[in-house]
């Protein structure tokens, strides 16, 4: 269920534009203009909305998870990146987390061997995660060549790097292979590993299938079912310069690719994919361990009912006196 339904959903999402633009030409306006604008709006404002929703809740306590030596005596070396006390150190910790997945790098695997638990190295998830996210980013940025008329040198350089080996024509992008491999690994892992399958939800499979479909449709379009790429850029530029046009000669495969991306954009703010924004708001990572150095303020701190010393002494005065303890009232 939780695997099959998301798969069927993605198949339907592929078929929609495929039939749409093949059968009724006019739907190009819908798939090429209406949906993309809606998707971008939903993504941008949905994302901002979600972050603001999180931001509305305060962080009442200073609760970093410390993963290294605290700052204490001057001769004890503080682990500045794993147990930060200054903002710069926190920034360093966050950069490690966001750019190279520091925490996931610690991952290891527990097994029962010969009647005892042993902990083995397990870097595959980290590697696949890193490969997936970085290739996704690379591919995303690379696509800027469709969105700016004079493509900046930096983007061209990136593309040069990505197709460094100059295999085939059009040149083969390494990131295409990497993202396919990584997403497939993440998918297979969810199906194959019993623990991961047990914890997985439909919402975990859907984005994987969707991203896989996006990558495959893109690869098919670049290398196999080619389309009129100049027209595609005309359409793209038309969209981003708020002057949309539907040029002639764009194949259905393009609309499939575009539609799936639009679905991803619209799905993004309302799903677990928001971890992209959420990681920056995670109090266990983005706070300095300085709560003994400066007082941390909880905006909703309120007075509570306590058992005062006076009440305590009233309860035990005789016993205290007998035991030779000083009392306030005789």
């Amino acid at each position: 269920m939780k695997t099959v339904l998301p798969f069927i959903a993605v198949v339907i999402l592929v078929l929609l534009p495929l039939f749409g633009v093949t059968v009724a030409h006019q739907t190009q306006i819908f798939f090429g203009v209406v949906v993309p604008y809606t998707a971008v709006a939903v993504f941008v404002f949905g994302f901002i909305y979600r972050i603001l929703q999180w931001g509305k809740s305060p962080v009442p306590f200073c609760i970093p998870t410390t993963c290294g030596q605290q700052k204490s005596l001057p001769w004890i070396k503080q682990d500045k990146l794993e147990n930060p006390v200054t903002t710069m150190q926190v920034v360093g910790r966050m950069l490690l987390e966001v750019l190279v997945f520091r925490s996931l790098f610690r991952n290891m695997k527990t097994e029962m061997k010969e009647g005892k638990a042993v902990y083995g190295s397990e870097k595959l998830l980290w590697l696949a995660g890193l490969a997936f996210h970085w290739s996704f980013l690379f591919i995303f940025v690379r696509h800027y060549r469709f969105f700016v008329q004079d493509v900046p040198t930096a983007i061209q350089l990136m593309e040069g790097m990505d197709s460094f080996f100059q295999i085939g024509a059009p040149l083969f992008y390494m990131t295409d292979a990497v993202i396919l491999g990584a997403v497939t690994f993440l998918l297979v892992r969810r199906v194959y590993l019993p623990q991961i399958r047990y914890i997985s939800l439909a919402a975990d499979f859907f984005p994987l299938f969707l991203i896989l479909a996006i990558a495959i449709s893109g690869i098919l379009m670049r290398y196999f079912f080619k389309t009129h790429i100049v027209a595609v850029k005309q359409l793209a530029i038309g969209l981003v310069s708020l002057n949309p046009t539907i040029p002639e000669g764009i194949g259905a495969i393009f609309y499939v690719h575009l539609f799936l991306i639009c679905v991803l954009l619209m799905y993004f703010p309302f799903s677990k994919l928001m971890h992209m924004g959420g990681v920056f708001l995670s109090p266990t990572r983005n706070m300095a361990n300085d709560s003994r150095i400066v007082r941390y303020i909880n905006p909703w701190n309120y007075p509570v009912h306590v058992h005062t010393y006076e009440e305590y002494e009233d309860d035990f005065r005789e016993k205290m006196k007998k035991a030779g303890l000083p009392v306030e009232k005789e």
């Binding site: 993504f43 901002i48 603001l52 005309q234 038309g238 924004g277």
Partner: peptide, 23 residues
């Protein structure tokens, strides 16, 4: 969020007021 907004809408910002050249 400002950084996010700029990055997310960068293609629009870069094309502000530019005509779509005919190729």
């Amino acid at each position: 969020l400002v950084v996010f907004f700029i990055l997310a809408t960068l293609p629009f910002l870069l094309n502000l007021g530019k005509a779509n050249a005919k190729i």
